[in-house]
Amino acid sequence: MSKVLVLYYSTYGHLETMAQAVAEGARSTGAQVDLKRVAETVPLAIAQSGHFKLDQAAPVATVAELENYDAIVVGAPTRFGRMPAQMASFLDQAGGLWARGALHGKVGGAFTSTATQHGGQEVTLFSIITNLMHFGMVIVGLPYSHQGQMSLDEIVGGTPYGATTIAGGKGERQPSKIELEGARHQGLLIAQTANKLFGT
């Protein structure tokens, strides 16, 4: 079976929860799945005063590890309609992998969170996906086979470009059942695709 990395950055824990759901979906296919995060770059005193979630269990990834995986699913919250500096800095260090074509043909996907419905979910996903395409990766989004994202009964995240959640202006909202189902579904589809391409 394929090897899948769910790589995320989470300030307050919303993306950590979504990443866990993506990993669950990928594992359901029999794929070997690792859940890792990128390092926090905000000074500790500022992170503590800002109530960042600093006790996340996932180990910190290194750029060199990326080429060991058949699929990489990248999750990060929005910062003014783009990925945050923590994730951008990590990917910026992957120039050596890009130069060698080390990620060509691998499967990629993205997921995100925003404070509000209209806080830039799709544009943030594309800011991640653009990087993955420069690496030569094959992108798998969240198609409407996850019909929960079409719900009119409640406010939900979810786009055809990747799983999303809405955190609220103060981070008071946690990922909903439908949003977590979307994250699991995307993880499953990405792992299924990687299994077809790389599984034995």
Rank of each mutant, 00 (worst) to 15 (best):
G81L: 08
A57W: 02
T78I: 01
F90L: 05
A94Y: 08
P77T: 09
V73Y: 06
Q48H: 07
P59M: 13
V107L: 05
A64R: 07
L54K: 12
L54E: 14
A64I: 00
T78K: 04
P84Y: 12
A58L: 14
G50D: 07
Q93W: 04
P77K: 10
A64E: 15
R100D: 13
A71S: 07
M87Q: 03
L54M: 15
E65L: 10
R82G: 09
I72S: 06
D55K: 05
A76W: 08
K106F: 01
A102G: 11
A61W: 02
A76E: 04
V74C: 09
V107G: 12
F80I: 01
P77C: 09
T62V: 00
F90H: 09
Q56H: 06
W98I: 06
T62A: 15
E65N: 08
V63W: 14
A61F: 08
P77S: 11
V107Q: 10
A94P: 00
H51D: 13
G101P: 01
V74R: 07
L103Q: 14
Q48E: 15
S89W: 04
L91E: 06
Q93R: 15
H104F: 05
H51I: 00
Q93L: 11
L97K: 11
L54R: 09
P77E: 13
R100E: 15
M83P: 00
P59L: 10
S89R: 04
R100A: 15
T78V: 02
Q93V: 00
Q86F: 13
G105P: 00
D70N: 12
A99V: 04
F52M: 12
G75Y: 03
L91A: 05
D92I: 03
K106Y: 03
A58Y: 08
V73P: 02
K53N: 15
V60D: 10
S49F: 02
A76T: 12
